[in-house]
Simulated assay, not measured.
Amino acid sequence: MEYEEAVRRLAPCGLDCSRCADYASGEIQKLSVRLVELLNGYLRVARVKEDIKPVFAGYPQFEEVLKSFAQAACSGCRGNNVLCPIECVAGVCTREKGVDFCFQCGEFPCSKKIDPQIQERWVNFNRRMKEIGVEKFYQEQSRLPRY
């Protein structure tokens, strides 16, 4: 993987946007589209099965979630259609500083208010990128669960 491709996929905080369930054309979105196609009309079968396996009573909710995944439209943090529910100052700050990732800034780690949901990962991911390089970091992360 080349640096530019890793930058496109990774957010400035180090999270992998391309593996997010909300990422347009990501693997989750593509697989969800295919699963929606394959399960078209399955509600009839789920209703028959729910007497034997009560979990199938929740099939309509599963179908709604699956369709939501299939409609993923986020461009990732570096794109024009950012739909991430986490407000992160890293994206704005890195653009202002003219760097791709926080670790490339002389002030890292800074005292800016980073969302508590990503604070620890933000520091750890950026330290790891600095240590092994962005391309190797992306390869390393791509082998781990996104969530």
Rank of each mutant, 00 (worst) to 15 (best):
C77Q: 12
A46F: 10
L66F: 12
Q117I: 00
V89Q: 10
L31Y: 07
K53H: 10
E120C: 01
W122H: 03
A11F: 13
Q61G: 15
C84D: 10
D100T: 01
C93N: 02
S75W: 10
S111R: 14
E120V: 09
E50D: 04
R8V: 01
C74G: 07
Q117P: 00
G79V: 13
L35C: 01
A72C: 08
P54S: 12
G14Q: 13
L10F: 01
R34F: 05
N126Y: 06
V89F: 09
P54H: 11
E120D: 11
R34A: 08
E5F: 03
I118D: 02
P85H: 05
V134D: 07
N40C: 04
C20K: 13
C13W: 06
V55E: 15
F108C: 08
E107R: 04
C93K: 09
C110P: 09
K49T: 03
P60S: 15
G133S: 05
M129G: 02
Q104V: 06
A6K: 06
L10N: 03
E87F: 02
E5R: 11
F56I: 02
R19E: 05
L35A: 05
R78P: 01
G14H: 13
C74I: 06
L83W: 06
K53I: 11
G106W: 02
L38H: 12
C102R: 07
E63W: 09
S25E: 15
L10R: 03
R128S: 06
